[in-house]
Simulated assay, not measured.
Amino acid sequence: MRRFEGKTVFVTGGATGIGLATARRFVLEGAAAVVMGRRADVGEAAVAELEAAGGRALFVRGDVASEADVVRCVDEAIAAFGRIDVLVNNAAMSTSVDFVAGETSEWKPVFDVIAFGTYFCTRTVARHMIEACVRGAIVNVSSINSYRALPMTSHYNAAKGAADQLTRCTAVELAPHGIRVNAVNPGFVDTPMSVVDGENELETDWFKDIYVERRKIPQARAGGPEEIASVVAFLASDDASYMCGATVPVDGGLSLTF
């Protein structure tokens, strides 16, 4: 199935993890993929992988927290492929911060990437879609943490909550232009972000005990990046043509037992 033949997808944080799996899925379904990220070496390696799979791909170096970078990268993508049909807001970062003892400076980078990054990219690409009369799709990669609570992650959870609300609000505002906005909300996924202080949390005894043995995750395992990518592709495709402002959990059932 090649649902995106002749289309272009723009993926932020697209060089690793869910972003790379998403770019790969779109390429395999016929799209050209633009990967935006901050590290040139990782980005170029991702593009080489996508091209080796038979796809057309471009790496654009920039920081989603910078509106100027976003505008420049979107312009580069349009110059290369003519248009953007799908935007995937995937770039994110996470740290551990104590709510009481933590500093404001520890919150800002997370909000800049997740909340403002989603805002900058969505607005910039939407302006292009409207001007070019592209009936496009925007998919935000959020998290089940957007509506659940954990200690030491209030900044990350609040930023993801903002991303969910941006999904709903922009879905309403952009629908008259033929642009659909939806979000996917992953749970535990085996990506580079799973590594905290040099340790992969998915390989720890506490994860295996609580989430696997005791089946806090009903499916008793973490997800793979490609499993999130498949839902992103669905939401961006015509198969989801009547979905507007949805936030879809893809978490092995974790949000049912959280």
Rank of each mutant, 00 (worst) to 15 (best):
Ala68Tyr: 04
Val70Arg: 02
Val70Ser: 05
Val70Asn: 02
Cys73Glu: 01
Cys73Tyr: 07
Val74Ala: 10
Val74Trp: 08
Val74Leu: 07
Glu76Thr: 01
Ile78Ala: 14
Ile78Met: 06
Ile78Thr: 12
Phe81Glu: 05
Asp85Leu: 01
Asp85Met: 05
Val86Lys: 00
Val88Gly: 04
Asn89Tyr: 04
Asn90Asp: 08
Asn90Val: 03
Asn90Glu: 06
Met93Glu: 04
Thr95Val: 14
Thr95Gln: 13
Ser96Asp: 08
Asp98Gly: 10
Phe99Thr: 11
Phe99Tyr: 13
Ala101Tyr: 10
Glu103Trp: 04
Thr104Tyr: 13
Ser105Cys: 05
Ser105Met: 07
Ser105Glu: 15
Trp107Ser: 05
Pro109Gly: 07
Asp112Phe: 09
Asp112Val: 07
Ala115Gln: 12
Ala115Asp: 13
Gly117Ala: 04
Gly117Arg: 04
Cys121Lys: 06
Thr124Gln: 15
Ala126Asp: 03
Arg127Leu: 12
Met129Tyr: 05
Met129Ile: 06
Glu131Gln: 13
Glu131His: 08
Cys133His: 13
Cys133Pro: 00
Val134Ser: 09
Gly136Val: 02
Ile138Leu: 10
Ile138Thr: 07
Ile138Ser: 07
Asn140Ser: 13
Val141Lys: 10
Ser143Met: 11
Ile144Asn: 09
Ile144Tyr: 06
Asn145Cys: 10
Ser146Leu: 08
Ser146Lys: 02
Ala149Cys: 09
Ala149Thr: 13
Met152Asn: 12
Ser154Met: 11
His155Cys: 02
Tyr156Ser: 05
Tyr156Asn: 08
Tyr156Trp: 10
Asn157Glu: 14
Ala158Gln: 06
Gly161Asp: 02
Gly161Cys: 05
Ala162Met: 14
Leu166His: 11
Thr167Cys: 13
Thr167Ala: 05
Thr167Gly: 07
Arg168Leu: 15
Arg168Lys: 15
Cys169Phe: 11
Cys169Lys: 01
Thr170Tyr: 14
Ala171Gln: 00
Val172Met: 09
Val172Pro: 00
Leu174Glu: 01
Pro176Gly: 06
Gly178His: 05
Gly178Pro: 11
Arg180Phe: 12
Asn185Thr: 04
Pro186Tyr: 03
Gly187Ala: 09
Gly187Asn: 05
Phe188Gly: 02
Val189Trp: 03
Val189His: 01
Val189Leu: 04
Thr191Ile: 09
Thr191Gln: 01
Thr191Phe: 12
Pro192Phe: 10
Met193Pro: 00
Met193Ala: 15
Ser194Glu: 10
Ser194Lys: 05
Glu199Val: 15
Glu199His: 03
Glu201Gln: 11
Glu201Cys: 04
Leu202Pro: 00
Trp206Gln: 08
